[in-house]
C-alpha cells in the first residue's frame, strides 16, 4: 500500500509533480515547467516594462528570467510557494526585478548566452503592453491582472479547439461573444438565422458553451495549482485582481 500514501496523487497536476519530486531531473518535470512558462510569459514581461525597461530589453530579460527559472537551483524555491505556480513565478519575478540592474549589465556583457534560451516569441508584447491602463497599478497588480487575462485567453483557445475538432467552429465563432457579454449583442434570432437553426437551439448552445468555458477555466487553473481544491480560491484571487480590490 506504499504508493497509496501520496493521497493527493490524483488531484495533483503536472506542476505539482515538479514540486513533490523536488528533483528537477524527474521525468517530465522540465517539460511541464517549460510548458507553463510559455503560457504565462506576458505577466513577467509586463512587470519588466512597468519597471522601466524598453521592449527590446524586456524581451531579453524575460528570456533570461525564464532560463533561470528552468535551471536547477530555482525549483527548490518553488516549494515555499505552497504549490501555486503563479505565486511562485511572481516571487521569482520580484527577486529578479530587484536585481534587474545586475542582470542587465550581465546581458550587455554577453553573459546571456550561457543561459538556456527558451525561444518565446515576444513580438506581441510590444503591442499588448501599449494599454495605458497599466499605469495606475503596481507591478504586482499588473502581474496578477495580466495573469488573469492570459488565463482567460488559454481557456478560450481550449474551448475553441474543442469546437473545431467537433466540426463546430462556426458555432463557436458566432456564440463566443455570448459567453460573458460586456456590451450589446445581436439578437438570438439573428444568430439562429446565420447558423440556420432554431432560436431554441441557439439558446441551448449558449448555455452549453458557457458551462464548457467555466470548466475550461477550471482546467487551466488546475494546471498551475497543487490541489484541485485550490482552483476556486485561485480564481477568486484573480477576480479580485481584476476588480481592483
Amino acid at each position: 500500500m506504499q504508493r497509496k500514501s501520496q493521497s493527493d496523487r490524483f488531484e495533483t497536476t503536472q506542476w505539482s509533480e515538479v514540486l513533490l519530486a523536488g528533483n528537477p531531473n524527474q521525468l517530465g518535470a522540465k517539460e511541464a515547467l517549460d510548458r507553463l512558462c510559455r503560457k504565462y510569459w506576458f505577466p513577467v514581461y509586463a512587470v519588466l516594462r512597468k519597471r522601466g525597461s524598453t521592449h527590446t530589453d524586456a524581451e531579453d530579460l524575460t528570456q533570461a528570467f525564464f532560463a533561470e527559472v528552468l535551471s536547477d537551483n530555482k525549483i527548490a524555491v518553488a516549494d515555499k510557494a505552497r504549490g501555486r505556480f503563479r505565486w511562485f513565478l511572481l516571487t521569482a519575478c520580484n527577486n529578479f526585478v530587484a536585481n534587474v540592474h545586475r542582470h542587465q549589465t550581465a546581458l550587455k556583457r554577453g553573459g546571456g548566452q550561457k543561459h538556456i534560451s527558451i525561444n518565446i516569441d515576444m513580438e506581441s508584447g510590444l503591442q499588448r503592453y501599449k494599454s495605458l491602463e497599466d499605469q495606475q497599478w503596481t507591478a504586482e497588480q499588473i502581474f496578477d491582472r495580466r495573469w488573469a487575462l492570459e488565463l482567460i485567453d488559454h481557456a478560450t483557445n481550449r474551448v475553441r479547439d474543442e469546437y473545431e475538432a467537433r466540426g463546430k467552429a462556426a458555432w463557436f465563432e458566432a456564440l463566443e461573444p455570448f459567453i460573458a457579454p460586456g456590451t450589446e449583442l445581436p439578437p438570438h434570432n439573428q444568430i439562429a438565422a446565420g447558423l440556420n437553426v432554431s432560436v431554441g437551439a441557439v439558446k441551448t448552445a449558449i448555455h452549453r458553451l458557457r458551462k464548457r468555458f467555466g470548466v475550461a477555466l477550471q482546467e487551466e487553473v488546475a494546471e498551475t495549482v497543487h490541489h484541485r481544491k485550490e482552483v476556486k480560491d485561485e480564481l477568486k484571487i484573480l477576480l479580485d485582481a481584476l476588480t481592483g480590490a
Binding site: R145, I152, T156, E176, F213, G214, V215, V231, L242
Partner: peptide, 23 residues
C-alpha cells in the same frame, strides 16, 4: 478597456469558472 473587445468582460468570464461546479 484592457481587453480584447470580442472577448467580453474578464470579470464576468472569471465568474464562470467560479460558479461552475467542479468535477
Amino acid at each position: 478597456e484592457s481587453t480584447n473587445p470580442n472577448a467580453g468582460c474578464p470579470r464576468c468570464l472569471l465568474r464562470m469558472g467560479i460558479d461552475e461546479p467542479t468535477i
